[in-house]
Amino acid sequence: MDVFMKGLSKAKEGVVAAAEKTKQGVAEAAGKTKEGVLYVGSKTKEGVVHGVATVAEKTKEQVTNVGGAVVTGVTAVAQKTVEGAGSIAAATGFVKKDQLGKNEEGAPQEGILEDMPVDPDNEAYEMPSEEGYQDYEPEA
Rank of each mutant, 00 (worst) to 15 (best):
K6H: 02
S42A: 13
E131L: 07
K21H: 03
K6P: 00
P120N: 08
L113E: 12
K32M: 14
K6Y: 02
G31A: 09
V48P: 00
G51S: 03
V66P: 01
L8V: 04
K102H: 14
P117N: 12
T75G: 06
E35N: 11
L113H: 08
A53V: 09
D98T: 15
S42W: 15
G51Y: 10
E104K: 09
A90W: 13
V15G: 00
V16C: 10
K45P: 02
D98R: 07
G25I: 13
M5R: 15
T92A: 13
A56K: 10
K34W: 15
A27H: 07
T92M: 04
T59G: 06
A76P: 01
T59R: 01
A91I: 06
D119A: 13
V52Q: 01
K12C: 11
V55K: 04
Q79W: 07
E105L: 08
V77W: 15
K58F: 12
E35G: 04
L8N: 00
E105C: 03
N65C: 08
G7H: 04
E61T: 04
T33M: 15
T44N: 01
I88D: 05
T44S: 11
M127V: 09
V71W: 15
A56T: 08
A85T: 06
P108Y: 11
G84L: 11
T64H: 12
D98K: 10
T92V: 11
V118Y: 10
G14Q: 15
G51Q: 08
M1P: 00
V118H: 10
Q79F: 03
Y125Q: 11
Q24A: 08
K10M: 14
E110G: 07
Q109G: 03
K12D: 00
V40K: 01
S129D: 11
V40M: 06
M127R: 05
A107M: 09
K43R: 10
A11Q: 00
M1G: 00
G68Q: 03
G93L: 07
G73I: 07
G31C: 01
P108V: 07
A89V: 13
K45F: 12
E61K: 07
A17T: 10
P120T: 11
E126M: 09
E105N: 10
N65A: 06
M5C: 01
M5K: 10
L38R: 15
H50P: 01
P108S: 10
S87L: 12
T54G: 09
E105D: 10
E110T: 13
E105H: 01
V37A: 06
A89Y: 10
G84V: 14
V37T: 01
S9V: 12
G14K: 13
G41K: 02
V95L: 11
A140Y: 08
K34T: 02
E83Q: 08
K43Y: 14
K60F: 13
N65G: 12
G132S: 03
V77P: 02
P117T: 09
T54A: 11
E114R: 10
G101L: 08
K10C: 02
P108F: 05
N122R: 15
S9M: 14
G14D: 02
E13F: 05
V49R: 08
V15I: 13
V82I: 08
K96R: 09
P120A: 12
D2M: 04
A11N: 00
P117L: 04
V118R: 12
V71S: 06
Y39Q: 05
D98G: 12
I88Y: 13
E46I: 05
D135F: 11
K96H: 08
G73N: 13
E114V: 09
T64L: 10
S129T: 10
K21S: 08
A30F: 14
Q79P: 02
G86R: 05
G41M: 11
G106T: 05
Y133C: 08
T92F: 15
K97W: 15
P117S: 04
V71P: 01
K6E: 02
Y39S: 05
V26R: 00
G132D: 11
T92Y: 06
S129Y: 04
P138A: 12
M5T: 01
A90F: 10
A76E: 06
A53E: 07
M127Y: 10
E61V: 06
S9G: 10
K96D: 10
A30H: 02
Q134L: 10
E20I: 11
V118S: 07
G51P: 01
Q24K: 15
S87K: 03
V118I: 04
P117H: 05
N103R: 08
E104T: 09
V26H: 00
D121P: 08
V95C: 12
A78D: 02
A78L: 14
V3E: 00
T75A: 14
H50N: 10
A90K: 05
E137M: 05
N65W: 13
V48A: 04
L8E: 00
D135G: 05
E13I: 06
E13N: 12
E131T: 10
L113F: 08
T64V: 10
A85D: 02
K58M: 15
E57D: 06
V15F: 02
S42H: 07
E110K: 05
A124R: 13
Y136I: 09
V3M: 07
E110Y: 07
E104Y: 04
E20G: 01
T75R: 05
K58V: 09
A53P: 01
A78H: 04
A69T: 07
L8Q: 00
A124D: 15
G132F: 13
G84E: 06
E126N: 13
V40A: 05
Q79L: 11
T81D: 02
A19I: 04
D119I: 10
I112H: 10
A78E: 01
A140T: 12
A11G: 02
L8A: 01
L38V: 07
V70E: 01
D2R: 01
V82A: 10
E13H: 02
A27Q: 14
T33K: 00
E28K: 06
P128Y: 02
E57H: 05
G41Y: 09
V118K: 11
D2V: 00
Y125M: 03
G14R: 14
E104D: 09
A29G: 02
G7D: 00
A76M: 05
K12W: 13
Q109P: 09
M116R: 05
V49N: 03
T81S: 05
A76K: 10
D115E: 12
N103M: 12
G47T: 14
Q24E: 05
E139C: 03
G132H: 07
D121N: 08
V63Y: 13
T92P: 04
V26E: 00
L38A: 04
G51F: 11
K32Q: 03
P138W: 11
E57T: 06
V40E: 00
D115A: 14
G41R: 11
V52G: 01
K34I: 10
V82M: 10
V15P: 00
A85W: 13
K6F: 04
G67H: 08
Y136A: 06
G51I: 14
V37L: 15
S42T: 06
A19V: 11
A124L: 04
A76I: 14
E137Y: 08
A11C: 15
E28Q: 09
P128A: 09
A124F: 15
T81V: 15
V40Q: 00
L113T: 10
A11P: 00
E61L: 07
V49T: 13
K102W: 14
M1N: 00
G86P: 06
M5P: 00
G84F: 15
G47W: 09
K102Y: 15
T59H: 02
G68D: 14
A124Q: 05
K21V: 09
E104L: 10
K34V: 14
